[in-house]
Design a protein around this nucleic acid. Structure first.
Lengths: 208, 208
DNA sequence: CCATGCAGTTAACAACTGTTCTCTGGAATT
DNA sequence: AATTCCAGAGAACAGTTGTTAACTGCATGG
């Protein structure tokens, strides 16, 4: 079925990826709406016109970056949200997983946080769609949990949304403290833990 | 003490405000990092060089916009967070207050949501500082509440931060549904209410 | 082996940007 | 009434932008 990549397609894929990487780097200190196509091609070392072979516009590139940043993250939901014996232990796992992801892909996280409310509509929509998928997946996972008995569909959706937003907040908090003194980072982790724990407490007493 | 404004200073103030207003309008569909100084002066109908009489740069203007958007909001904290007989009624009041503010100043809210993680460092810092002030004020208000007995300082700070973040999330949710069908807006309000209520439940059972 | 396809190049375009310097009119100060 | 001050105008600068057209070289499929 799957043909050998072919020297031609492989080279194209490489330059495309180089454009994405260069753009992501440039976006560390500016927003997508001010990212110029020439700027990107210059960083890659390629002619400006070559850009059009891969993307219609920088907005188009932005949408591709959303896919790159969030697309591969869905499988993590199941393992993270799956029920565990100890609630606190699960929270600890989730927080450390977020911390690890932020440390491993800071530019991706920054990009999502920045462009979620950014000035480029198609990118905002792409992010919104991905986050909606996350919320659906979290909701599905919550529904399997024993403590979800008696919960209405609306309430499950509301809780899933709360979790997704809280994860983004946590990620962006960790991002801000990435190159901060050790002690401040530990405080950030502790804050994130307790906030999730408080939500967890509210969840167990929701039906009172 | 306070001299009569003076025709001169008054005129200057007017153009400065016109620049701020025009910028805010232009920022509805782009980020600050792509906002050009010429763009702003053109929208006001003034020479490009006049810009320098009021701001060093567009980043400088952005900082001024942060002050305009958030500076006058602090007094609202006391009245919103102040203890009430009924917890749910207070939540309803808070949610409607946010909804009203978003409806009255959508551009300001959009600006804050967009530039909080945006590409212009001084503006990010200005917003962070204002939000930290909000958190401090919320924390102070929480401390006066009877149900805060036995809470550690760290936990009060953590809860205050959670509230501030949740209010921003709610505001940006309302912003997205501003020109959506009536029914979707009602759903958004209901979601916001329940999320705050869940946090409230978690808060009352925190010390168990 | 030859013809086609197509990623990337080169050159040129009109339009735009931030910033400088010089100037002007009229309010503010003396 | 004479002088100073200063918000805004005007012109010019070097550098940037997105987009177009026509090209070149090389991997690919017949």
């Amino acid at each position: 079925m799957s043909h050998t990549p072919g020297v031609r397609q492989e080279q194209k894929r490489k330059t495309r990826q180089a454009l994405l990487d260069a753009a992501l780097g440039l976006l560390e200190e500016q927003s997508l709406s001010s990212l110029g196509l020439r700027e990107v091609t210059r960083a890659v070392g390629v002619a400006p016109t070559a850009f059009y072979r891969h993307f219609h516009s920088t907005a188009d590139l932005g949408v591709a970056l959303v896919e790159e940043a969030l697309g591969s993250l869905h499988p993590m939901i199941r393992t993270t949200m799956s029920p565990a014996e100890d609630d606190d232990e699960r929270i600890d796992r989730a927080v450390e997983l977020i911390a690890g992801h932020v440390a491993a892909h800071p530019a991706h996280v920054r990009f999502i946080a920045r462009e979620r409310h950014g000035g480029v509509q198609p990118v905002r929509r792409a992010i919104r769609e991905q986050l909606a998928r996350f919320a659906e997946e979290v909701k599905a996972e919550l529904a399997t949990d024993a403590s979800a008995a008696g919960w209405s569909d609306t309430d499950l959706r509301m809780l899933a949304g709360l979790y997704v937003d809280q994860m983004l907040i946590t990620a962006s908090l960790f991002l801000e403290t990435l190159d901060a003194p050790e002690e401040e980072r530990r405080r950030a982790v502790e804050t994130a833990r307790r906030q999730l724990r408080l939500i967890s407490v509210g969840r167990t007493h929701w039906l009172d």
